[in-house]
Structure formats: structure tokens, C-alpha cells
């Protein structure tokens, strides 16, 4: 686990001060009744139709590990081991499609199963029951929060990772015909992606000897100053290589944004839609009055 992944961690991962002897009693009880309580928990999970993507054997094995870590956390007051396990578990179950509400559900079910068991065990002594619950609840809440947060953080990390993977795999520069490229930009344009698209586009211009590139931004919802300037720079860089760029699909909202931001659009050739852009591109490419072999000797006197 990387250091930055720990950043959300509470500076003091200790649980609130409680009566240690009561906690010892509680932990001993949970250990003595491990088999029954664990089975009860699995039964409740199945009943609530949680973790449907996992087999009963898998559920049982994970439940056992979480249960033991849970009891250890209650005993030691330290949630670090449980937290590490929760992260590891999340990493394994997220790719299989386990949802946040399921994780929250099973954690709350365990809390409920244990609380009910404690109630049954100590119901004859109301005073002791109260003190046991006082010791149990803050610790149990803390544990529930830790497991849930670990899951959500892991899920966010996976999403970021998938975004990177998609970004990396996308090769959106299309050759329409000889010397004409289209770069359809879809989705969120941030600085890193804009930079990557520029490199791809310029490389494709060189590889295809492109004369015109149509950059279609119909699929871009919003744009900020950094990205707008990047777009202007991309058009200019394409021109330096000898290719004309045409921007199409500029929504009125983005056009207004660009004007408000004061982006210099004087060098930009824009056409309303992709079809119009392609027609304009054809016109530019067709505009080659002299054949390749023609030499200045043939030029005007």
C-alpha cells in the first residue's frame, strides 16, 4: 500500500477509552461463540441477498477472516490490521462487481448479530448489559466506519486506475482518407489527456503526411482555460508541422466560455458540425493547383 493511500487515516487509530475488563469479557464471549455467531452472520447475509456474486464457500471464508479481525480489533483497540484486511478484501471483490451498499450492509449486519447475541447473553443483568453495550457500540461503530471507508477509497482508486487505462488504450486519431485525419474528442478533457491527444495527433500527422485534421469536440461538455489554451496550442503545433486544423462541434456554451475566458481564437478555423468540417477539409486538400513534379520554371514570368 502506498503512502498516499494512507492519507485519509485518522492520526490516532485508537478507539475511545472504555472499560478494559468489560471489553475482555466481551472479546472472550465473542471468541467462545465464534462458530455460532459466524454462522448466524452468514445466514443473515444470504437472507438479505448480499454478495450475490460470491459463492457460499467464499462468503464463509471472508466472513471468518473479517470476524476474527473484528474481534482482534475490539481486543487491541487497534484497527490497523482490520483496515489492511478490508483494503485487501475490497481489492479482490471490487472487480467482481460488489457494490458499496452490500459492504455497508454486511458490516451493519455483523454489528446487529453481535448486539443481539450480547442482549440475549446479558439480559438478566440490565446494568451489566448496559455497560457491555456502552463498551461495544463505540468500538463497533468505529470498525464499521473503517471497513466502509476502506471499501469506498479502494473503489475510488480502482475508478481512477480504469480511467487511466481507458485513456491509455484510446487511439482516437482516425484516417478518413488520404491526408485527412479526424480526432473526435469525447468526454472530459483535462490537462493530461489534452497533452496526450496532442502528441498522438502530431505523431499521426507525420505518419500519414496529413494535410488537414478535423478536431471534433461535439462530445466535450465543458472546457476550462488550461484546456482551451491547450487546444489553441495544438492547432498551432499542427500548423507548424504543415497541417491545417479545423475545429468542429463547438457548442454555443463552449464558444461562450472561450470568449469569456479571452482565448485567442483568431488562428482557429471553426466549422459548425463534423459534416461541414469534412467538406471544408476536402476543399483544402483539393486545393493543390500544381502537380508534385511541377517546378518553378513553369511559374509566371
Amino acid at each position: 500500500m502506498n503512502q498516499e493511500d494512507q492519507s485519509h487515516e485518522d492520526p490516532s487509530p485508537q478507539m475511545p477509552e472504555v472499560d478494559r475488563s468489560l471489553l475482555h469479557e466481551l472479546v472472550a464471549y465473542l471468541r467462545d461463540n465464534r462458530t455460532e455467531l459466524r454462522e448466524e452472520w452468514v445466514a443473515r447475509i444470504t437472507q438479505a441477498q448480499l454478495l450475490g456474486v460470491m459463492t457460499p464457500e467464499e462468503i464463509f471464508s471472508e466472513v471468518t477472516a473479517v470476524y476474527d479481525n473484528y474481534v482482534d480489533a475490539l481486543e487491541t483497540g487497534s484497527i490497523e490490521t482490520l483496515q489492511a484486511y478490508a483494503r485487501d478484501l475490497s481489492e479482490r471483490i471490487i472487480p467482481r462487481g460488489v457494490e458499496t451498499h452490500e459492504v455497508l450492509g454486511i458490516v451493519l449486519l455483523l454489528r446487529d448479530v453481535l448486539a443481539r447475541a450480547l442482549f440475549v447473553e446479558y439480559q438478566r443483568d440490565a446494568d451489566l448489559l448496559n455497560r457491555i453495550l456502552d463498551a461495544y457500540e463505540p468500538a463497533a461503530n468505529r470498525i464499521a466506519v473503517t471497513v466502509s471507508v476502506s471499501f469506498v477509497e479502494e473503489r475510488e482508486r480502482v475508478i481512477r486506475e480504469q480511467q487511466e487505462a481507458i485513456r491509455e488504450l484510446s487511439t482516437p486519431v482516425l484516417q478518413v482518407r488520404d491526408r485527412l485525419l479526424i480526432l473526435p474528442i469525447i468526454g472530459v478533457l483535462d490537462s493530461a489527456r489534452a497533452r496526450q491527444l496532442t502528441e498522438q495527433l502530431l505523431g499521426a500527422i507525420q505518419a500519414n503526411r496529413a494535410k488537414v485534421v478535423v478536431i471534433d469536440i461535439t462530445g466535450v461538455a465543458t472546457i476550462d482555460l488550461t484546456v482551451a489554451n491547450h487546444l489553441v496550442q495544438t492547432v498551432e503545433a499542427a500548423r507548424l508541422m504543415g497541417a491545417s486544423a479545423i475545429i468542429t462541434g463547438l457548442s454555443s456554451k463552449i464558444a461562450q466560455t472561450l470568449v469569456d475566458l479571452g482565448v485567442d481564437l483568431s488562428m482557429m478555423r471553426t466549422v459548425g458540425d463534423l459534416q461541414g468540417g469534412l467538406e471544408e477539409a476536402e476543399r483544402l486538400i483539393g486545393h493543390r493547383p500544381t502537380a508534385k513534379g511541377s517546378r518553378p520554371d513553369a511559374a509566371a514570368p
Partner: peptide
């Protein structure tokens, strides 16, 4: 007419 500007050189120039 200037010719032969490489992609990475163009990226640097527009900065």
C-alpha cells in the same frame, strides 16, 4: 516556407 518541424519540436515551440 519552413519544413521538417518534428512533432515534439512543435509542441515545445508553442509554449
Amino acid at each position: 516556407v519552413i519544413t521538417g518541424i518534428e512533432p515534439d519540436v512543435a509542441i515545445a515551440m508553442v509554449q
